[in-house]
């Protein structure tokens, strides 16, 4: 167990010291949030509603990007031979994957916190203290399926492909999930599909919190389903790569 803590520390350091991760991973969602909420918007009750909804959407988008990005790091480690080196340390393979997933969860926090801070400090979003706390906790925990999706890609694909596929996953999930633009603007059939995508339900955890309610049973069930799907994919990919590398 101390080994896994050291491993998580090592991986978190590696990620947070990456200027690309800090600038794009954290800066982009903040910038997009501020642009989307301050360009062409008028002052009014609708305006604050949009500032809150978009804050949750962009925080979710930032968290999603960091979570999926964990897999890009794994693919890189595979090509460096670091995964092979890890296999000859006494740390059991299961702990390596788990440690990596937990490290991925930690690196989700900066983007999440930065967007919420921009909402509170720049856009004047006011929520109860418990709501802020619940937002952080729910969006943080809810990012786990996406970390697993990234890990699955990372073990499954080559370093170059993983980067592209992960960005593709991020874009599709964010757009289809209504993280950038509300799904209310979608045509009806697309809206129905969108409600079953993982990113949409992920953001719902936040949207229901800002409305002062608990996330619905459907939201939890849909997210749990995706957790199983992405988790199985991660396990499958890991086993497959352990056989071939």
């Amino acid at each position: 167990m101390p080994a896994m803590l050291e491993y998580i520390k090592l991986e978190v350091r590696r990620t947070l010291r990456d200027p690309g991760f800090v600038i794009f991973g954290t800066g982009m969602p903040v910038l997009m949030y501020l642009l989307f909420t301050n360009l062409g918007g008028g002052a009014g009750p609708d305006d604050m509603e949009w500032k809150i909804a978009s804050m949750v959407g962009m925080a979710a988008y930032g968290a999603l990007g960091a979570a999926v990005g964990t897999g890009t790091g794994i693919a890189e480690d595979k090509s460096l031979g670091w995964l092979r080196q890890l296999r000859i340390t006494p740390m059991p393979p299961r702990q390596v994957v788990l440690g990596r997933a937990l490290a991925g969860s930690v690196t989700v926090l900066p983007a999440l916190l930065a967007v919420l801070a921009a909402g509170g400090l720049v856009n004047g979003v006011r929520l109860a203290l418990w709501q802020w706390a619940a937002l952080v906790a729910l969006l943080w925990a809810g990012a786990l399926p996406f970390t697993l999706l990234g890990i699955g890609n990372g073990y499954h694909l080559s370093a170059q492909t993983t980067g592209v596929v992960n960005v593709g996953c991020l874009m599709v999930l964010a757009l289809a999930g209504g993280l950038w633009f509300p799904i209310a603007a979608f045509p009806g059939w697309l809206r129905t599909i969108a409600e079953y995508t993982p990113a949409n339900r992920f953001a719902y955890l936040g949207w229901s919190t800002t409305q002062g309610t608990a996330p619905g049973a459907t939201t939890i069930a849909v997210l749990a389903g995706w957790l199983v799907v992405f988790g199985s994919y991660a396990v499958f990919s890991y086993r497959r790569s352990a056989r071939t590398t």
């Binding site: 090592l10 590696r14 031979g81 670091w82 080196q85």
Partner: peptide
């Protein structure tokens, strides 16, 4: 009980 130095290992970054 085993420590090994592999031939093809390249450095991991930023540690």
């Amino acid at each position: 009980r085993v420590g090994a130095m592999l031939q093809d290992g390249r450095p991991i970054r930023r540690v």
